[in-house]
Computed example of a mutant assay.
Amino acid sequence: MRRSERKRERPDLGILSGRTLFSLQKELFTRLSEMGHAQVRPRHGAVLAYLDAEGSRASDLAAQSGQHKQVIGTLVDELVALGYVERRPDPADRRAKLVVPTELGLDHMEKSDAVLVEMEAEHARAVGEEAYAEFKRVFQLVAERQTGVR
């Protein structure tokens, strides 16, 4: 059996994760575009998915997303230019900066959360509530083990 056939019939964790991520991003960002957020791209998720409403430090965003701090800096620059976030002094440490969502950024974050809840509900209906809950539990354990992040 050729490798490509084997991977198609018995995909490994990398292939399954990649397929899931890319398909999820495509649907999520298509729906968000229809809701008025056409300028945001999947790469911006490294910031917006982890951003706290009251703001986050870029170093924390980098650690949570697994991206380099320089990548996060570039993404924050893009999101500032698009009007989704702004940089503000961190009240806890005036030398540090917080990345804070604007009203537009908060709208995107709220809509993104709502779309993901809908998508998960659709999956749960398709495979069964218990099966989906068990899948998420096990997938979280695998992700934690793989990344060392709990």
Results as ranks from 00 to 15, higher is better:
66 G>A: 12
125 R>D: 15
6 R>Q: 13
122 E>G: 12
56 S>L: 09
64 Q>I: 00
22 F>M: 12
87 R>T: 03
113 D>W: 12
114 A>F: 03
80 V>Y: 08
90 D>T: 00
128 G>H: 00
51 L>W: 08
91 P>G: 04
31 R>K: 11
96 A>N: 06
48 L>I: 13
51 L>S: 08
71 V>S: 14
65 S>H: 01
28 L>P: 03
109 M>D: 07
21 L>G: 07
124 A>V: 02
22 F>T: 13
20 T>Y: 05
56 S>N: 13
11 P>H: 05
91 P>K: 10
92 A>T: 05
83 G>P: 03
5 E>I: 13
123 H>P: 00
37 H>D: 11
61 L>H: 10
91 P>T: 06
25 Q>G: 07
59 S>K: 12
7 K>L: 09
116 L>M: 15
32 L>T: 02
16 L>D: 00
98 L>G: 06
71 V>G: 03
33 S>Y: 06
10 R>N: 03
132 Y>W: 15
91 P>R: 03
53 A>G: 08
47 V>I: 09
63 A>G: 11
119 M>D: 10
77 D>Y: 04
103 E>I: 02
36 G>E: 10
77 D>R: 14
119 M>R: 14
126 A>Q: 14
57 R>F: 11
125 R>V: 11
53 A>Q: 13
130 E>K: 11
97 K>V: 07
40 V>D: 10
51 L>V: 08
135 F>A: 05
25 Q>R: 12
30 T>D: 14
55 G>D: 06
75 L>N: 06
89 P>G: 08
82 L>I: 05
132 Y>H: 15
89 P>H: 07
4 S>T: 09
110 E>D: 14
2 R>G: 08
91 P>M: 04
63 A>L: 13
67 Q>T: 01
56 S>Y: 07
103 E>Y: 04
101 P>V: 07
110 E>A: 15
118 E>N: 09
75 L>I: 11
103 E>V: 12
28 L>Q: 12
62 A>I: 06
43 R>S: 13
29 F>T: 01
45 G>H: 10
105 G>M: 03
3 R>N: 09
92 A>F: 04
